[in-house]
Amino acid sequence: MEQSLLDVRNLHLYYATRKGVVKAVDDISLSLKRGETVAVVGESGCGKTSTARAIIRLLPRNVHLYRGSIILDGKNIMELDDERFRKDVRWKKISMVFQGAMNSLNPILKAGYQVAEPLMIHENMSKVEALKRAGEALRMVGIHESFIDRYPFELSGGMKQRVVIAMALITRPQIIILDEPTSALDVITQANIMNLLKKLKNELELSYIFITHDIALSSELADKVAVMYAGEIVEMADAETFYVKPSHPYAEKLMASVPTLRTDKQLDFIPGAPPSLIYPPPGCRFHPRCPYAFDKCMKERPTAVDLGSGHYVKCWLYA
């Protein structure tokens, strides 16, 4: 078997809040090969961004628990201290396109400077050199180099998103985490960005962790799909398997709620609301909304069942 580039094992990230401990990432494992994309899909608030933050170790101050192992190129980067992590891993090996980043570009700094910033911060590069590299990065994402001197307000939404992607690319990382990289864009612009991401992936042999709530969109990049529910990954499957027939009841329902353009189907939705991550339901976290729930589901927490060739499902139906 091919060696994994990134191997996340039993990752936990809990937040301390006044109302209680939020179990935003609760024992998550996933692996990523070079050039491969894992899509992380799930409802809002299920912990997708938290997972990303846990991997790139950009944690808020109120962390209650941060545990697990993250093996990058055979080395457990969880063991690095913050300084080393910042120097050797963040942005150098793994970078990230943050959710909504295009709308939080600094309005008073030129686009080129913002793209170059990671180089200046993480590699202590001189401004001139960094700006040169920023020009190259902009060209890579399909923006003319002259745009280096533009301010964010002079850019369209699609261009801003490209700038943000250039920021993630500029340090030549192996892995880019994309957190909802197109959620504020039009479908045509979105399709253009997805095209760009596909091209970059092939040209640079990038691995993506692609976070989205849009299942249809996830199929644009995903080699593997991880379905998150209430802080857990409840299903992990190959794209071929997943988009044809997801196995976990939640994934199945989620798929049924996706309106399709080209085919007619009966739309379905998941009744009820997503659970609290402070007091998640006992047993299977999906049981209050699951049409197939039976006795055991309410009492025992299902463990990941291996259905073969890297297909895991956390559901008692498959045990």
Partner: peptide
């Protein structure tokens, strides 16, 4: 036509092709 082309339906084949959409923005 471009609008329709740009919209994916969930399909594992999607990732293997580029979408034929016009560049540019409104």
């Amino acid at each position: 036509q471009a609008l329709i082309k740009a919209i994916p339906d969930p399909d594992p084949e999607n990732r293997k092709v580029l979408r034929d959409v016009p560049p540019g923005e409104p």
